[in-house]
Design a binder for these strands. Structure first.
Length: 756
DNA sequence: TACGCCATGTTTTTT
DNA sequence: ACATGGCGTA
């Protein structure tokens, strides 16, 4: 095949060695994705394998999408039928098809992390336990860890190790909470993220006919980012591949950064044991980065103890050394990065999209944003708070979810008194008690509510039940969009947001409209065969809006956490906040294994860069609103000095004392303004409006006015030329000048005002 | 039951 | 700095 021509020998082997178990150890930048996509293309094109019989699992939606696109380029529309996606999405599909075997409804709800934690909180409270001792977060992680190791609650409460662990931690009730949590999820017809994998394992373990069906179907199984899989995931694929034995895993132990989620490097070692006739292919030549970058990264990663033998090298140019910039404050750090980008962009003829700013925590984006905005450098933030996590969106989704599954406890709690119906916490508690003590489904209790609640409250619940029933009629007869808009209107949600004339209310209203638009798009799309609301809701919990953003799509500087940068590459990479306690994170200093994971994270960050890496750190940084002094990260010293260059030009010469005047004062003043506007109850008639928040943070909230320079996430930078605001109808028409051309925008929620 | 004010904890990363 | 939860009042 023609595409084999530009592959080096090990890459070519990775593509052509199709039969039997294969492990591809792929160093950073070694063309791993290319091998995987060509391999699949090769199966379809040359070996005539039905795409329907190929299962390709990735870790993130982003990776799945990218791979599908690349395969489509080689094999065309055949790629449509591939079973490709994240573990969670692929197996949720299978679980829906086979749900009856496990006693779940096929339209089971998927609880996201927020749902799970709030359920745990309720349980802890109901059990009369100390909520500080049994923090939802901690309990959730403990349960999640157990599930990812395939420890059921039955195993858990009888396992002496877990018991003594919990007793030593003064948390003896952990197992009991686990049990209650699992039972509550089951009764609610809900699975959390970990259940999607755990229950798939149960399904394949207990229903051999089902297992056999999928074993026959999936002749070829492939796993990307294998180092990030946990035991639960690994066992699923092992079972699936055990008939044909055509399993191919691709990974790099040096890039394993998800141990906190149960990922296990051990999987790689186990793999060799489980498949003795394994072919191992090593991709060691890096095509992405300069020698200085590869060498610097290598000099860091050797500090880790556990490693597979592998040496990553490159034939690329030496390139520049890794730059190091010191700043006095986080704000100055932002300014230095912004001016460095500004300079390189013009001096080296680069575009915005060639740059990426990577950080350890999402909250670090703020100071970077400020600086970039001031220099008029367009940027885009990946990750952070997802659209689907916004309150108003979760509210509407809860209505939609409950209409589909009336036993979904979390959705019920969310909407039962929204808008206010006079049903408070005590009534809800009574309903729950009635359901649990009699082992009756929630919906059953609600339908016979007069037996459980006094007259007035019972009446209110009765009305709620009638309302939901009217939604169900719509659900059965209409498509997703008709049903959802009906629910949004009739529930009173839309009206409540409409009546809320505050700036935030306006925004929320628009966000809900945006969700409805998304549903409309889903219905109109030719790709979705099933246009029911169930089909739309099925995967919503598995989506994040980072998945909808294509890094190459628009010409913006990219900003994201290092975790979400995995698999991506950029010409110039800034790794900011290189400070002890921040990176490595304070939380990760407890064990050697944790520190090594942080080091691998640093390795991942370094190896994203093609041409230039710049590290920055600040001597002081705002945290919880307080200025804190910082020390440079130990990782900086771990880079072999031969590959490191202290960037004098960009190093701060400002004395420490000066950091409290200019920049921080203006920031303070700005936030004050923002707060004032945000709490103004009504939008006055005339031309006072806001900007925020679908893509921007609430602190951007300010009055919009003609003449202001603004940014729109799609249209880019421009100026407000004219605005007509109709407060009564809540519509604004803004004439927006974009590079000299006039554009009319009907909505302003996505405009951000730029500093002058 | 609803609402307002005050106290408290939170920030590691993602499906 | 910000969101959440508790507590008191209407």
């Amino acid at each position: 095949m023609d595409y084999l021509a530009h592959l080096n020998p090990p890459q070519r082997e990775g593509v052509e060695n199709l039969e039997g178990p294969t492990m591809i150890i792929a160093g950073a930048g070694s063309g791993k994705t290319r091998v995987l996509t060509y391999r699949i293309a090769h199966l379809i094109r040359s070996k005539d394998v039905d795409p329907f019989k190929i299962l390709a699992l990735t870790f993130t939606n982003k990776a799945a999408k990218e791979m599908r696109e690349r395969i489509e380029k080689v094999v065309g529309t055949d790629a449509r039928n591939l079973w490709m996606g994240t573990f969670h999405s692929v197996f949720s599909r299978i679980l829906r098809a086979e749900s009856d075997k496990l006693g779940y409804p096929s339209n089971f709800t998927i609880y996201d992390t927020d749902d799970s934690k709030s359920l745990i909180k309720n349980i802890v409270r109901e059990m009369g336990l100390d909520e500080k001792l049994y923090k939802a977060n901690v309990v959730y992680n403990r349960i999640s860890g157990a599930k990812n190791n395939l420890i059921s609650w039955q195993n858990y409460i009888s396992n002496p190790v877990y018991i003594s662990d919990d007793e030593q931690a003064q948390k003896p009730k952990m197992g009991a909470i686990y049990k209650e949590y699992v039972q509550r999820c089951f009764r609610a017809g809900a699975m959390d993220f970990d259940d999607l994998l755990f229950n798939t394992n149960i399904l394949f373990r207990d229903h051999l006919d089902v297992l056999n069906k999928y074993q026959q179907r999936f002749q070829y199984v492939m796993i990307d980012e294998f180092q990030d899989t946990n035991i639960s995931q690994y066992l699923i694929t092992k079972r699936l591949a055990s008939v044909h034995q055509n399993i191919c895993v691709v990974g790099d132990d040096a890039q394993s950064i998800y141990a906190f989620r149960g990922a296990n490097i051990q999987n790689i070692l186990n793999f060799e044991k489980d498949y003795p006739d394994l072919s191992v292919i090593k991709l060691e030549q890096n095509y992405r980065s300069t020698q200085n970058i590869v060498n610097a990264a290598n000099s860091v990663i050797v500090k880790n103890s556990a490693q597979l033998k592998k040496s990553v090298w490159t034939e690329n140019d030496h390139g520049e050394k890794v730059h190091l910039i010191k700043a006095t404050s986080d704000n100055e750090e932002g300014r230095l990065v912004a001016s460095s980008i500004f300079e390189d962009r013009s001096n080296k003829k680069l575009e915005n999209k060639d740059f990426a700013i990577l950080y350890r925590t999402n909250s670090q984006s703020r100071s970077m944003e400020e600086a970039l905005r001031k220099m008029n450098i367009p940027y885009r933030i990946f990750g952070g708070l997802s659209f689907y996590q916004r309150r108003e969106i979760k509210d509407l989704l809860a209505y939609l979810r409950f209409t589909i599954n009336q036993n979904d406890e979390q959705s019920f709690r969310r909407i039962i008194n929204l808008p206010k119906r006079g049903i408070g916490g005590t009534s809800v508690d009574k309903i729950m008690v009635a359901a649990f003590e009699n082992e009756r489904p929630l919906w059953d209790v609600l339908n016979n509510i007069q037996n459980f609640l006094p007259g007035r409250a019972a009446n209110a619940v009765q009305n709620f039940v009638t309302l939901i029933k009217s939604f169900r009629i719509k659900l059965e007869r209409e498509d997703a969009f008709e049903t959802a808009s009906f629910i949004a209107k009739q529930s009173g949600l839309l009206k409540e947001l409409y009546d809320d004339k505050t700036i935030e209310g306006l925004n929320r209203y628009e966000n809900v409209q945006e969700l409805l638009n998304a549903i409309k798009e889903f219905v109109d799309s030719t790709e979705s065969e099933d246009k029911s609301l169930e089909a739309f809701i099925a995967d919503v919990a598995l989506l994040t809006d980072a998945d909808n953003q294509d890094p190459n799509d628009t010409n913006y500087v990219n900003m994201m956490t290092i975790h979400s940068a995995k698999g991506l590459e950029f010409k110039h990479v800034y790794i900011v906040g290189m400070e002890e306690d921040l990176f490595p994170s304070q939380m990760m200093l407890n064990s050697r294994a944790d520190l090594e994971e942080e080091r691998r994270l640093f390795y991942v960050a370094l190896t994203r860069a093609m041409e230039k890496v710049t590290l920055t750190y600040a001597l002081s940084r705002y945290r919880f609103g307080r200025l804190k002094s910082c020390e440079p990260s130990r990782f900086i010293e771990e880079i072999d000095p031969e590959f490191l260059k202290v960037d004098r030009k960009f190093n701060s010469s400002e004395p420490m004392g000066s950091m409290n005047n200019g920049s921080s004062n203006s920031l303070y003043a700005r936030n004050l303004v923002a707060k004032r506007k945000a709490t103004t109850p009504k939008v006055p008639p005339g031309k006072k409006l806001h900007t925020p928040s679908a893509d921007f943070k609430p602190s951007d909230t300010r009055s919009l006015d003609t003449g202001m320079r603004v940014e729109h996430p799609k249209f880019g930078f421009g100026k407000v030329v004219k605005m007509d605001v109709d407060g009564a109808n809540r519509k604004a028409t803004i004439e927006f000048e974009l590079f000299g051309e006039k554009t009319l925008l009907l909505t302003f929620a996505k405009l951000r005002i730029l500093e002058d």
